[in-house]
């Protein structure tokens, strides 16, 4: 009944303090393991990754988020009834920053929450190790609201699918929109972001690494490749 595909995996997202995304970090062994960007980050550990290209620096990230914040305001004709919900981990800080920006433009701060999607993943039994479950912290009623789901990277779309299910279990929003800093393509589900910081064509062998200062002490986005 269980998936017996030979895989190595570990929970890097859980291992706070272990940065798997620096130039000397380690990453997936098998391209199949990159089926999900979030999953890919969590797997061990036998192959090293190095930065190939930096595609966004601190200013670039700030500009992209500023534009997304304006687009959210414009699309929703203001921020009445709008709330931001980030997907753990790096969607969380990004949602807070978008709320800061929206507040500075509109004078109204939309509510912000964080979603843990671990219990909604579609690959739990395929992983050799259980990822850690963290708390979902959405301390407002989402029913009737326009929710902007925020994540750092969209890849296969499976994380967003899990995020949609997790969100809908909390209530019935009027609509859900999706904001991502990076769209790296390769979708496996019919999901399309409403707000995109930057479209980045990638190959499946590459890893897109988003660092945010709240977690990684710096703001940057890089494409990493495996060291052969």
């Amino acid at each position: 009944m269980r998936d017996r595909r030979p895989r190595e995996s570990a929970d890097a997202r859980a291992a706070e303090g272990t940065d798997l995304r620096t130039s000397k970090s380690v990453g997936p062994t098998n391209p199949r393991d990159q089926a999900d960007q979030k999953g890919a980050k969590e797997r061990t550990v036998l192959v090293e990754l190095r930065d190939k290209t930096q595609i966004m620096d601190e200013m670039g990230m700030k500009r992209a988020l500023t534009r997304i914040a304006h687009e959210i305001i414009e699309t929703n004709k203001g921020v009445q009834g709008v709330a931001l919900v980030g997907i753990r981990r790096r969607g969380g800080p990004l949602a807070v920053r978008l709320a800061d920006l929206i507040e500075s433009f509109e004078g109204i701060r939309p509510p912000v929450g964080v979603l843990d999607i671990t219990l909604y993943r579609d690959d739990l039994t395929a992983l050799a190790n259980q990822p850690l479950v963290h708390r979902t912290e959405v301390h407002f009623d989402i029913t009737g609201m326009s929710i902007v789901l925020v994540d750092d990277v969209i890849y296969t779309g499976r994380t967003v699918r899990a995020g949609l299910d997790a969100l809908i279990d909390l209530g019935r929003p009027r609509r859900i929109q999706l904001a991502v800093l990076i769209d790296r393509g390769h979708r496996e589900l019919p999901i399309k972001p409403d707000f995109v910081g930057k479209n980045v064509p990638t190959s499946r062998e590459e890893v897109v690494s988003v660092c945010v200062r709240e977690i990684d002490d710096e703001d940057k986005v890089t494409i990493q490749e495996r060291i052969q």
Binding site: A10, D11, A12, A14, A15, E16, G17, T18, T44, A128, N129, Q130, P131, L132
Partner: peptide, 12 residues
């Protein structure tokens, strides 16, 4: 925090 090692232990 060494959490990976912990969860590995539990999974076995």
């Amino acid at each position: 925090m060494g959490i990976s090692a912990q969860s590995t232990q539990f999974d076995r």
